[in-house]
Design a protein around this nucleic acid. Sequence first.
DNA 1: AGCGGGAATTAACATGCGTTAACCACCTGT
DNA 2: ACAGGTGGTTAACGCATGTTAATTCCCGCT
Lengths: 252, 252
Amino acid sequence: MSASTSRLLQRLASFVPLSPEELRVLETAAGPARLHRPHEDLAREGETAAHIGLLVSGFAFRCRVLSDGRRQIISYLIPGDLCDARNLLLPVATHTVSTLTAANVAPFGRETLLGLIERHPRIGQALCCLALVEELIAREWLVNVGQRTAIERLAHLLCEIFTRMRTVGLTDHGRCELPLTQVELADSLALSTVHVNRTLQELRRQGLVSLSGGMLEIHDFEALQAVAMFSGHYLEPGPAHPERAQRRIAPR
Amino acid sequence: MSASTSRLLQRLASFVPLSPEELRVLETAAGPARLHRPHEDLAREGETAAHIGLLVSGFAFRCRVLSDGRRQIISYLIPGDLCDARNLLLPVATHTVSTLTAANVAPFGRETLLGLIERHPRIGQALCCLALVEELIAREWLVNVGQRTAIERLAHLLCEIFTRMRTVGLTDHGRCELPLTQVELADSLALSTVHVNRTLQELRRQGLVSLSGGMLEIHDFEALQAVAMFSGHYLEPGPAHPERAQRRIAPR
DNA sequence: AGCGGGAATTAACATGCGTTAACCACCTGT
DNA sequence: ACAGGTGGTTAACGCATGTTAATTCCCGCT
């Protein structure tokens, strides 16, 4: 199981310096991964989860569905993401999490993890940072859907996902896996499928990206970023107040 | 200073049971309130704050502005809200916070608060819950802007704010203060001012609400909720996993 | 009372995107 | 090699909402 948690550990450690002990403890806390099929629910709105799943491989997404069927995709999960750390503190899930592809998910027992946090507060702090970044992403999506035009929105989403994939080492030059249909893009960006199609073609025509067969290829990241008015700051806030982090690591 | 923190304390305690000791310590941690004028920035995107402000009275909002001037209001702050608990863990603010009206803000020193959390982990847990609720609100706004029509959006926003005002005891029957201009509503809902105006009139015509002179009056909350497809669940997730909370309070 | 200025309102017109509905290009199983 | 299904593409048309700009309202100020 040791390799499967590494992406998560790396990200956590980028927020708060973690001791070898803390890393080891976290690493062994995850249960054996379970393989899920594509389009399977990992968590359902209104239910309570007894464990926190770590996405080891594959893709998933969160979404909310209105009573009349309108659906808004709220975020995407890539390898190294936790399915719902919120369940540690809040009683019920407020949205559904489903797989996009086949996916391996390693469970952390909720009680186990809470115990860990009690003994190692810095782990809690790191998890909290992870949650905060998710909030920043949610706000960026709000700005995206609220203020940007179709082509800007799409470009922005692609920039974001590509950047996130890169931080977990899942890009190969300008390429990465991205198994999204146009329907899913539409529900993420609050556009119709038809318009996503038109917009995707426009991006392709401008020679910026191509997306087909579940593979995203970015031909000119600079230009794409410019179109999207994308800045990756919100994805990697970096270590907070490093002077304090240092102080806390010293006594140990 | 004791009264000014009570709204915050009450909300924190609704997430995680806090001991009298913990409440006392929090209560005395806030500095003397500072009075800000309307339309003054409390925090600016990109800057680092040395303290966490508690909004004691008045209204404020968070927003992000794109390079070409388009602006998205991201959330509203009402009395009892923290201006930016994110600054405890993240180095720089990712959005601007400005006052809407004159406002009293009581500062918690960042270092003081971090020290408190170290000694009283449950305080940290409660603050974390507060942040999670903000995230839920952000996601609801995303759904709102992404999937709902103009009238649904506006109705939803009014439901949300009214509900939040009620939980901090600032409503009087169907009425509460709400000093928003139509420009601000427009930037919250991703609509034009003109269309906000049309939509507000439609809500008034249907006898659901009236909003004028900085006062919101809800004539038929049930019906408004129905129009908005509003459910307040996300605003009050209630105590998480109460059995555990109990266990932790016992040993003390 | 008159003046200035922000906010609300109204009207006329424009448009980005949605809707509907075909059609096409794959793939997969038989 | 065909059937059936999923996802992508195209075209024609419609509408919710945006834009512009003029007008009115309200309120504090002198």
